[in-house]
């Protein structure tokens, strides 16, 4: 039986690990640029098209595994070097794409797990040379196919708060409110994610302008589209702040407050936000989006509750 070739010296080992990380990132960048180009062609209306953030890192992990192949890495080493690769990718993304802390936090688990999955798969697949030639075009087809076939993803986040006051006492505080005094209580708010601070209202009629102000000076410009006193306020979000963490990733379209009279002197306040998600895998980013919108809803709705219940 033939003996496997000897393992490289430590300097070669480190060189190959670094080469794997750098080439994987280069390939990831090229695939993203190619995906962006394909995506623009397939969806001309959208400004920024990001290829699947599952497929691209898996491909990166496989590229790294192919370069690391002579090192015959075990599971532990593959995981560790995948972590280094993830850190390098995040560093590049922060430098080149100016991704902020929040984006990095949201993306990191998926990025690491996908790169590690790619590296572990590559570690197995590339032991034999049979699959090597098939995997590269398959991955390119997968990225391009996903972009070309990608449909729009819309969803809505719904939250409820029960308020010990009738709808007539709740309604004025839904229309507009001054600065929310409560400190933010959601962990991402503490790390810099903008949180709602106040709302202004230019008039009590459909078509009136409205603005929701967030910390850090971010403002969402809105237009009231449905005005049913003490029952429903619906508004379209016509302009979002030009935040790089939002652009091309997420569009919030519409918001709504619905007041349900419980008939016992209390009101159920329902908050809804409709949005479109432009990043994939949708299930992963949907989870984060729901968490964040929920925190935004509850901050506003709990403030409305406080004001309504404090009213004489």
């Amino acid at each position: 039986m033939s003996q496997p070739p000897p393992l490289p010296r430590s300097s070669e080992y480190i060189g190959r690990i670094l080469a794997g990380i750098i080439v994987a990132n280069l390939v990831g960048g090229i695939v993203c640029a190619f995906g962006y180009w394909i995506g623009r062609a397939a969806n001309p209306g959208n400004e920024i098209i990001v290829p699947s953030l599952l497929l691209v890192p898996v491909a990166m992990g496989m590229v790294a595994a192919w370069i690391w192949k002579p090192l015959r890495l075990g599971m532990g080493a593959a995981l560790l070097h995948s972590l280094f690769c993830t850190v390098f990718t995040i560093f590049v993304a922060a430098l080149v794409f100016r991704e902020g802390v929040i984006c990095v936090i949201i993306l990191s688990p998926l990025l690491y797990a996908s790169i590690a999955a790619g590296a572990l798969l590559g570690r197995i697949w590339f032991r034999t040379d049979r699959l090597n030639l098939l995997i590269a075009p398959a991955l390119v087809f997968a990225v391009v196919g996903e972009l070309s076939l990608r449909g729009s993803h819309h969803s809505v986040v719904v939250d409820e708060v029960r308020i010990a006051a009738p709808p007539s006492a709740v309604w004025p505080h839904v229309l507009a409110f001054d600065r929310i005094p409560a400190a933010p209580d959601y962990w991402l708010f503490h790390l810099g994610l903008p949180y709602p601070t106040s709302t202004t209202n230019a008039g009590n009629f459909a078509g009136a302008a409205r603005a929701c102000e967030f910390s850090g000076g971010a403002v969402f410009d809105e237009t009231i589209v449905e005005f049913a006193p003490e029952r429903k306020l619906t508004f379209d979000i016509i302009k979002m702040p030009p935040d790089p963490e939002l652009m091309g990733h997420l569009d919030a379209h519409r918001g709504q407050f619905e007041l349900r009279d419980n008939g016992d002197g209390t009101t159920t306040l329902v908050g809804r936000t409709w949005y479109s998600l432009h990043v994939r895998p949708a299930a992963y980013f949907d989870w984060w989006t729901h968490q964040i919108f929920r925190a935004v809803h509850l901050r506003v709705m709990n403030n409305v509750k406080r004001l309504a219940e404090a009213a004489p």
């Binding site: 599952l54 599971m75 797990a113 590690a116």
Partner: peptide, 17 residues
């Protein structure tokens, strides 16, 4: 879901490590 089990297992393995 293509690749989802592999990604999940990579996370499991990391947790175990």
């Amino acid at each position: 879901i293509p690749l989802a089990p592999q990604v999940f297992d990579a996370l499991l393995l990391t947790w175990t490590a």
